[in-house]
Design a binder for these strands. Structure first.
Lengths: 137, 137
DNA sequence: TAGTTTTTGCAACTGGGTTGCAACACCTAT
DNA sequence: ATAGGTGTTGCAACCCAGTTGCAAAAACTA
């Protein structure tokens, strides 16, 4: 039998392993972003720290997930909803961090707004992180 | 004799020490943001790592400098141009990272734009980081 | 199912950042 | 100007996130 996560893995030329399936499932089941520690907890410490690091790394390289810049300088990962290809991300969407429940959301439908930069500055990529209260709080 | 940096320190009820003066001078002389390692290098490794960490920490607490979220998850510090007071920052301005020279600028005059969030999301603070080519490249 | 390739888990390491504490520099009041 | 108390520095030791090398164990291929 071939599940959805299996397909995603195969589509990206990745061999289908237990850890990759479980970690990918976590992302598809969750609509918020996940930190390394979240994954460690939610898998019940079943996998080695190193395995989780390497899995996340390959997922990022393949464009399956992307990293989110945070204010407190931790690394968060979230599914790429748009069709990201290897080496080229379309993650120019807005991220939202809830001050209350501390969950980070990718607001894929919210496009980043235009800003007027001073003379001589040529913009290419724009990262927007909004914090406040989320829809579930 | 009383210099500008001395005044800033005194205004914030900080005793005027060698390390604080030198580090603060670096910020006033530089219009880009600085990382811990930059300061270590530019002071010629004259001060202990710990001293630099603690100095930056107290500067942040006093509202003299603020931290900037980065994509590669390093910590950057920049002078607060607006009048930030202890515990209350007005750093809702845009940050610009140059892809070429790798310098980060605080564009204090560029106000963060409005974004339309989905129903239920209530925004409070907004962080905007633009990357591209800066005015000097 | 055997052989090759890829992935995993362990151990050891690195590097950023923090903490405790004694020595020292700074400020104040005399 | 200086003696004393307070705040700051530097060192050593530590903690934690993330990385690397390598042998064992899976996953793919034919």
């Amino acid at each position: 039998m071939t599940t959805t996560t299996d397909n995603i893995l195969k589509r990206n030329q990745l061999s289908v392993t237990d850890s990759r399936k479980k970690i990918l499932e976590l992302f598809t089941a969750n609509d918020g972003a996940l930190a390394h520690s979240d994954i460690e907890k939610k898998t019940g410490e079943k996998f080695d720290r190193v395995t989780i690091y390497r899995t996340l790394q390959t997922f990022v390289e393949k464009g399956i997930i992307h990293t989110i810049p945070t204010v407190d300088n931790s690394v968060l990962y979230a599914l790429c909803k748009m069709d990201c290809t290897e080496g080229h991300h379309h993650d120019n969407h807005v991220h939202f961090v809830c001050d209350n429940c501390n969950v980070t959301y990718c607001l894929d439908d919210v496009v980043t707004p235009k800003v007027n930069l001073p003379d001589g500055f040529k913009p290419k990529v724009m990262d927007v992180v909004v914090s406040g209260i989320c829809k579930n709080c």
